[in-house]
Amino acid sequence: MGFLQLTSLSKRFGTFTAVEDFNLDIEKGEFVSLLGPSGCGKTTTLQMIAGFLEPTAGRITVEGEDLVAIPSAKRNIGIVFQSYALFPHLTVAQNIAFGLEMRGITAMERSQRIARAIDIVHLKGFEARFPKQLSGGQQQRVALARAIVIEPRILLLDEPMSNLDAKLREDMQLELRQIQQELGITTLLVTHDQHEAMALSDRIAVMQGGRIVQIGAPYEIYENPSSRFVSTFLGKSNLLPDPAQMARQISLRPEKTRLVPAGQGKLQGRVTACIFFGAHWLYQVDTDHGLLLAYEQNLGAARARNGETVGIDWDEAHLRHLEGQE
């Protein structure tokens, strides 16, 4: 039985269904991501767990205890908001202290726990600053410290990295994962960023239209996407017609292809774009099946130029048959 269980959860706003028949079991200490485009219901789900929205139907339980009837102030859930939602009128230390004060924790224990939280997020020396005086990355660390200092049963992360620049985001992802594992805190991340979901999660639940369309370990989902949506939302994918069934498609990851001299390989085409990404080259090849993408590891200069005719080859084992059109 899961630590956090969402059972047949639904949320309707008038006639619009944001979340429908949502089922998810999260183990203690697990890091799970809800991944999906905006409007897929992932934030609504998070808000129902946090207690900011009441589910239309279904149950949310933590260790068997029903959360729905409990107000958010009593749920003991730590949340890092997309906007960080720091209290602008309080210093870093006061922000972190807020949850402890609300719990009536003595001043002495409070200062010890604040010091430990500040240590964990590497914010020593910033205790007396106000949020406005911090960079985006520092603000996010405060938000994280404020959420974990209360030792919550569950940590919810609502697109926590979306306001950081790319380099900082990568650093924060590594750090966040480390902190989460050290504390062993059960965590649910909501994101539309596939890289973030893959870098952080034990399991990813890909959402579409208020439902989970596929759930599993990042490698598992990436390698075996069940649908066209998953195969294109999580990573890039070449979609080829399935020779066995007309209505179905086959997914072929661009990095599973090889460029070969013209006349060889399984498909022929003309290179229409060649882009250098540092670690790899990206080729766009115009073939009978449309534009295909091919990644080549950067082992030397570009293998083909724009306008050149090339062959594309792959191993049959890398082809993935997708279910249905969507």
């Binding site: 946090a50 207690g51 900011f52 107000p71 958010s72 102030a73 009593k74 749920r75 003991n76 859930i77 730590g78 949340i79 908001f81 997309q82 906007s83 939602a85 720091l86 209290f87 602008p88 009128h89 309080l90 807020f98 949850g99 609300m102 719990r103 404020r146 209360i150």
Partner: peptide, 24 residues
Amino acid sequence: ATENAAASLGASQPKVFFRVVVPQ
């Protein structure tokens, strides 16, 4: 979101108003 943040940290409705909304 600061109001939600305060609530998630354990603040009752009056506390959210007087300690988070009013100061802002």
